[in-house]
Design a protein around this nucleic acid. Structure first.
Lengths: 227, 227
DNA sequence: CGGAGATTTGAGATGAGTCAATCGTGGTGG
DNA sequence: CCACCACGATTGACTCATCTCAAATCTCCG
């Protein structure tokens, strides 16, 4: 849970490749980095809570962060899972002054934290920063809309098949991928209970999908496409 | 389906009050309006189709537009319902070059259409336009995330109760509201089949909700809050 | 090798979709 | 202004998908 300004090489590489900093002028990058601090959080640790005053947004350097809402009775629903290179809560730059959901680490996680007011000021002066913000917001909006559509259109096995297909490097024939995190996290990401994910995988067996731990093997990718 | 540059007074008032133009400098407003054209579309008419090249985004001046996706088998899932003053597809300003969903009028509708490339150029020069874009994207992202959370956390009657509560002008006691559109549109907006919305309303009867046509009466708003 | 936590499996309950029939309503035209 | 019609809304019966709870099993880490 310590916070400092020093980055190791891997984290620095992830940070520079994030769409947010990618393509900025050297000057803008320097200004952005000057508003930034790094923090290391243990697994299952809160980053912020719904209703907290929003004074920072974040970029995941390592690990995974879960954004979720709680119901009155304490059930939780994941809204988004953020992995290395992804930013979250940057919508607070221009709307609302409180976080609208909880954020919690799903693993030991390294985050870059940016001061919202400082970045707001930079964006006014540096056009490329404003552009980066707009591009990031646009992409997140599109993917969240896609999430709504997926939830409403597809069944559990179809959503799992989509997830696998989106990560298969090939268009046809056999493929193998490896989940970057626990299955329970994938379940939440797809809007499923862990049991439902498990059953979805077993439904996909008859379409040539084999799962062992985090390793997923697909006999024929094109087969999976007509689930 | 005619397109022209002349606005009637009501449409002009809606246009100027939309968050997109609200708060812009006079100069920016003029520039934005110069890239704009107005179109009138009959009910159930396509605005654009998924996969079309995205060269415009829109602001609803009158009527309602449904954004939705199609499944392979032809089922449709609504992603967002846009009413007067709301903009849609502005995420295409900075991500992707094709529309990611279908847009169709749900009533006779008047739209303002903005040329995407032109607005992109204006946003580079006019800071307030860039800010308006960011604010609009931020708000849409937040509300879409909220939509995901609602779908995953709440049952049909709860979502309907939320919708009603969000539109009740009072905090407690009796209230009456009027739906601005058909129930089938509300159903899609909440991710429900029309029959499910109907049943949700009848479930809410025992919580003091009366529905007659588009008119909804609530005996005690605070009662509705613990559905 | 042990054990905690994650995953799988089973059984049951429930929410929501589909299809079909009926009912109500608003809009149109006479 | 009224009657009628077409379409939207409701209701019922049924099916299917997913959640929940509980128990069994697996897996990974120390």
């Amino acid at each position: 849970m310590n916070s400092n300004l020093k980055l190791n090489n891997r984290d620095r590489a992830v940070l520079m490749k994030t769409p947010f900093l990618q393509g900025l002028s050297a000057n803008s990058v320097v200004r952005m980095l000057s508003t930034m601090s790094v923090l290391n959080l243990p697994v299952r640790h809160s980053v912020f809570r719904e209703g907290d005053r929003a004074d920072a947004f974040y970029c995941v350097l390592n690990g995974y962060v879960r954004l979720y809402r709680l119901s009155h009775e304490g059930r939780e629903a994941d809204i988004r899972i953020c992995g290395p290179g992804e930013t979250f809560a940057e919508c607070l730059l221009y709307a609302g002054e409180k976080y609208g959901y909880h954020a919690q680490t799903a693993e030991n996680t390294t985050l870059a934290s940016f001061d919202i007011q400082a970045v707001r000021d930079i964006a006014v002066e540096e056009k490329d920063v404003a552009q980066a913000v707009m591009a990031s917001l646009s992409r997140h909006l599109l993917s969240t809309m896609e999430c709504v559509a997926n939830d409403r259109l597809f069944t559990a096995p179809q959503r799992v098949a989509n997830y696998i297909l989106a990560r298969c490097p090939v268009d046809g024939g056999p493929a193998a991928i490896r989940l970057p995190f626990q299955k329970s996290l994938l379940a939440g990401m797809l809007g499923l209970a862990p049991e439902a994910l498990s059953r979805a995988f077993s439904t996909l067996r008859k379409f040539g999908v084999t799962v062992r731990g985090r390793a997923i093997q697909v006999v024929d990718v094109s087969n999976l496409r007509n689930v």
